[in-house]
Nucleic acid binder design. Sequence first.
RNA 1: GCGGGUAUAGCUUAGUGGUAAAGUUCCUGCCUUCCAAGCAGGCCAUGAGGGUUCGAUUCCCUCUACCCGCUCCA
Length: 589
Amino acid sequence: MSKPTTTDNRMEKIVSLCKRRGFIYQSSEIYGGIGGFWDYGPLGAELKRNLRDTWWRAMTRDRDDVVGLDATIIMHPSVWKASGHVDTFADMMRECTITNKRVRADHVEPQGGSVIRFTGAKAPNGWILDRTLSVLMKQGEHIESFRKRVRLLVSQNAGSSAGKPEEIELLGEERTEVVEGSVDFHPETGGLLNESRPFNLMLRTYVGPTATEDDIAYLRPETAQAIFAQFKNVCDSSRVKVPFGIGQIGKAFRNEVTPKNFTFRSREFEQMELEFFIKPDEAVKLIHGSVASWSEGADLGEPKPNWGWEMWHRYWVAQRTAYYASIGLGADDLDYYWQSKADLAHYARACVDILFKFPFGTDELEGIAARGSFDLTQHQAHSGKQLEYFDEELKTACDAMTAEQKVAFTEEAYAARNNPDTTCEEVAAFCEKLFKGLYVPHVIEPSAGLDRLALAILSNAFEEETVTDEKGKSEVRTVLHFHPRIAPIKVGIFPLLKNKPELVAKAREIVALLRPHMSVFYDETGAIGRRYRRQDEVGTPFGVTIDFETLGEEKPELKDTVTLRERDSMQQRRIPIADLLPFLLGKIL
RNA sequence: GCGGGUAUAGCUUAGUGGUAAAGUUCCUGCCUUCCAAGCAGGCCAUGAGGGUUCGAUUCCCUCUACCCGCUCCA
């Protein structure tokens, strides 16, 4: 009865539906739009709100070990110096003029060789590159392999339009000069580099009247840093005890080079982040004598006091997976990518990406990182404020230790140190603090993109079904299979005929009955089938039709019952009006 | 950022150097007893700016946005 939509145009159809039915529009569309910015229409706003609410409930309200935060988008610029964002992105960058590969201007090693210039390139299919290319031929490189290499680079940059690399003809080859110790060529490609220019993914603005360098501030590129910056305040004001988390939902901004794939990579987007603070493994060991580390099949159901960071990391992966299942994204829709040690940022212990199978490819929905104590340590160093946590339980455990035991523990900690560069003194200082009950908590960070989630939910829900009616006529039914919990509209209320005042009045009564509890949509126009289909297309899970049986005209036993029509199966059944609210609440809560 | 493509009504698609067409959606009315029915009527468009021209949606240039392929993605 149904067939999958072909993948080639699935994304196009989703984009079109989003606009047609008011889920997502281009920002500022009447002025031609602005790249990388998207607006949510009436139904999109509801969908996003529902998703936001499910996250907030699952991550904070339903737990007693997580509290919330709602911080500003613009923060003190020093926050971004401490986090490393300013340094990483204030670099002067240069780009290869052939491949546009970018390198840090100060990271180009001097090279020597012959500079070969081409006036352009062309391909048999008519493709032409009318641009001078200067490429460094390294000493010892054979001219033929050099040409082959350049053809490959040109081909890669031109994409499919230039055809096969071996068919590309390089034009006007000329040996221009021999250079020694030049920093003007890309270290990998050998292509001439353009002028260096500043490159920063953070969006800037000015705070204060003068719009000068002194007043530069940044729109946050992630929400997480506010949580670290307010860590001390939250500890001091909310009686939390490690392990505990701080969750936040909010806008973040990145000046992406290439926004693409609809809302997937946007310049303004919304994040849902949790920073879950845990004891360092050393503290767990001092308190409990040993640290529970992860092994296949370990029980991740309820957190245990002796869990180390690895167990907590796995626990949050499991929690987040359960969350996705609760809103309709199951195991078949998701994938996991465990970053290898080499991929990890230097401060991270582990990171897993939860991926969703989007129509344009499998891509990241959420990253769950074990970040050690990096962030708080950075903010402690930059702000000069003490961000260590005093752990009473740890202090009590250490007070019971002998001096010899403490020395042994310190030696053991040094032997087991994570980073080989860590000095003996640093380990000793860390242990001294531990013995006093002090440490900088480590953190597990599940960080999800709300807009990506909305897009995933839309992609996952979208289906074009071929349905065949009793007469054997088949047609396409477009339907969004939203989980009732997140559907923008929960129920459509329809009087069977609009020119029968009794039906309309009864339908209005039912709208009044349900509206205080959920989003309802009343529709009396057109044939009943059309109204059903309209709601299918926006993912309304239930339809309620008020008909002549409801009025008890022919069969008195059916008085005050209505037709309940289910979106996915299109099945209809009768249900007493009195049962309607409990039934629907059971589905949407 | 580079290369290629696209831009006509909410959507799908015609067409033209001289009043821009259709289907569908949507709205209104009539009708209609359960899956996009019928009849009648109605609203709505050449992405933006410049140039050529008596006149440009059409030809030229620039910009913008979107799509595809690279690149980028702390």
